[in-house]
């Protein structure tokens, strides 16, 4: 038991360090390995739903942060919902720690997605709409909602009176986060969207495809290891509370 408590943080630390190195390799690749976009036409151009081609110029490099962060946010949302269901079924404290950690990290990765997404959308498609910068693109808007839901979970949790109520509310709200995930993923299919439906044009360049793979592994590992770190930390807090109560 004791060995378990002292080893888990070390493993997550190692994971985090690996992830950070992966993130840095990704950044290096995304600035020096992937090519500069030359002209509108065939190369590195994304076709949004309108059908017109748009030159992304340098802005596409944001993709390598945007995409893994979006994956991580989706993962955090799923983890929170799964944690909620699992807690209601088993009533084990560990699931509570998972929901909280996933929400905390989801808040951070969601912010990364929102910021990079907003700047990217503004750069590539934004001009000429209300609120240049924030253009009410459905994918971004639903992502903002998910972000607000993560924040709401953490706020609600703090506001609860008793430990039991807190645990219940966390689990129930964690489950309510679940339906938001398909909403975000389907958002590009409803209404007018400028979010590309596929990045196959962009990924047709082998350098970009390789960098995307490194980004997905490296940055995702960095972000997921943050969940693990927070989980260890929250779990230790729970154990301390238990010891104090005993």
């Amino acid at each position: 038991m004791k060995a378990k408590t002292s080893n888990a943080p070390l493993i997550t630390l190692a994971l985090a360090a690996l992830g950070l190195i992966g993130a840095e390799v990704t950044l290096y690749l995304s600035y020096f390995y992937t090519p500069v976009q030359i002209s509108a036409g065939t190369l590195y151009v994304v076709t949004p739903s309108s059908g017109s081609t748009i030159n992304l110029y340098e802005s596409y490099r944001i993709f390598f942060i945007h995409l893994p962060a979006a994956y991580a946010t989706a993962l955090c949302c799923t983890l929170a919902a799964v944690g909620g269901i699992a807690w209601l079924l088993t009533r084990k404290d560990a699931w509570q720690a998972l929901i909280v950690s996933a929400s905390e990290v989801g808040l951070a990765t969601g912010a990364i997605v929102l910021l990079t997404g907003t700047f990217w959308a503004d750069y590539a498609w934004g001009s000429g709409r209300i609120g240049s910068g924030w253009n009410w693109e459905p994918r971004l808007t639903t992502m903002l909602i998910l972000w607000l839901a993560f924040a709401a979970l953490l706020v609600l949790r703090r506001a609860m009176d008793t430990d039991k109520q807190r645990a219940m509310m966390t689990a129930v709200y964690g489950i309510l986060l679940g339906p938001l995930y398909p909403l975000v993923s389907k958002a590009i299919e409803i209404g007018q969207t400028s979010h590309p439906k596929s990045f196959s044009d962009l990924l047709s360049a082998p350098e970009i495809a390789t960098t995307k793979q490194v980004a997905t592994i490296g940055i995702l590992l960095a972000l997921v290891s943050m969940v693990a770190l927070r989980y260890c930390w929250n779990r230790l807090g729970q154990r301390m509370a238990q010891e104090r109560a005993a």
Partner: peptide
């Protein structure tokens, strides 16, 4: 049913309800 029992639950309900009812 959960926020109603709390002090300041009115504001909490607003925060909690908005994101999940957006669909």
């Amino acid at each position: 049913s959960a926020t109603g029992r709390l002090r300041g639950g009115e504001a909490l309900l607003t925060i909690a309800l908005l994101p999940v009812t957006v669909p």
